[in-house]
């Protein structure tokens, strides 16, 4: 094939351009440590990256949700436990006072302790965490129990997303704790505040019947608070488990994201060296190609 002047120079120029292009691409990848810089580098990879990033951000947010709820649940548990303890003490006193060895004076004196227990329970009912009343349901900016112990919250149970697509309750139904539902009312129950009040009055009035009635009610309320504690315990455990699982999932996703998005440093370094060698070789060969023509040899 005839080689014309233009062909020689064009070929040299094209080859050098190609070598430089490859070298600069390799350098880009090495410097940015990214495999996928534009969509066309790897379209499927790019869409995977979008999905992974979204999943990772979501998992982190869910873990944050779990963190936020932990404190709330802990405080709720503490408060309910303290109420439980108070009720146990009240029951002990009631059992003791129903013994006929004690007289009116002792009973009146004990009544005062019952009154203190009652005030304590009302205060515990108004426990707050980070400015929210833990037993108030959705009405958590105003006290849950009035001074007389009436329940002023609502039935709301706070739900949060704690794992993808999964919304779990993270609070207890306050009304359940401090009020009797229609079912319980039908069976003759009432709430713990009324029970304690009744106990107090029974002791003050030396009325054994009242005291007995109150005592049975307090026992029933003890059962309720125990099961409330169990529920809270179960919630905490479930959240902890979920939290652990989520952080495990996050690690796996981060690995996958890195595989899709980051350049393999060994590969990109060796590519860079290789293209550099190619460029050098091309440049050297080109100088040899460009120089001689017959005119150099004519005198």
């Amino acid at each position: 094939m005839r080689i014309s002047e233009r062909l020689r120079y064009e070929t040299v120029s094209n080859r050098i351009n190609n070598a430089r292009d490859q070298n600069s691409q390799a350098m880009e990848e090495l410097a940015s440590q990214r495999r996928v810089e534009k969509l066309s580098d790897d379209p499927i990879g790019a869409s995977q990256i979008i999905r992974y990033r979204d999943n990772i951000d979501t998992l982190r947010q869910l873990q944050t949700n779990i963190e936020y709820s932990k404190g709330f649940l802990e405080r709720s548990e503490e408060a309910l436990q303290a109420i439980n303890n108070n009720l146990i003490r009240a029951k002990e006193l009631a059992v003791a006072m129903s013994n006929d060895t004690y007289d009116q004076n002792s009973r009146s004196a004990t009544a005062r302790e019952i009154r203190e227990i009652l005030d304590e329970v009302i205060q515990l009912g108004n426990t707050t965490f980070n400015g929210r009343f833990v037993f108030g349901g959705f009405r958590n900016q105003t006290p849950t129990l009035s001074l007389e112990g009436d329940f002023m919250g609502d039935d709301g149970i706070v739900h949060l997303e704690v794992s993808p697509g999964n919304f779990r309750p993270v609070s207890l139904n306050g009304r359940d704790v401090f009020e009797a539902n229609p079912d319980e009312v039908a069976r003759g129950h009432f709430n713990m505040i009324t029970a304690l009040n009744l106990l107090h009055d029974g002791m003050m009035n030396n009325d054994k019947d009242q005291m007995h009635k109150a005592m049975y009610e307090v026992e029933f309320q003890l059962d309720k608070t125990s099961s409330g504690l169990a529920t809270l315990g179960a919630m905490s455990n479930a959240l902890r488990e979920t939290g652990n699982r989520l952080s495990g999932d996050e690690i796996v996703l981060r690995e996958q994201l890195s595989k899709a998005q980051d350049a393999d440093i060994y590969h990109s370094t060796s590519e860079f060296k290789r293209t550099e060698a190619v460029l050098q070789g091309t440049l050297m060969a080109s100088t040899k190609l460009l120089q001689p023509s017959l005119l150099n040899f004519l005198q």
């Binding site: 094939m1 080689i3 014309s4 233009r6 062909l7 023509s293 017959l294 005119l295």
Partner: peptide, 19 residues
């Protein structure tokens, strides 16, 4: 590129030839 090469080899100037 291929066609340009062919065109150049037919129509291009070679300094050796002209010399």
């Amino acid at each position: 590129e291929d066609l340009v090469k062919r065109r150049e080899s037919i129509s291009g100037v070679s300094l050796d030839e002209e010399a």
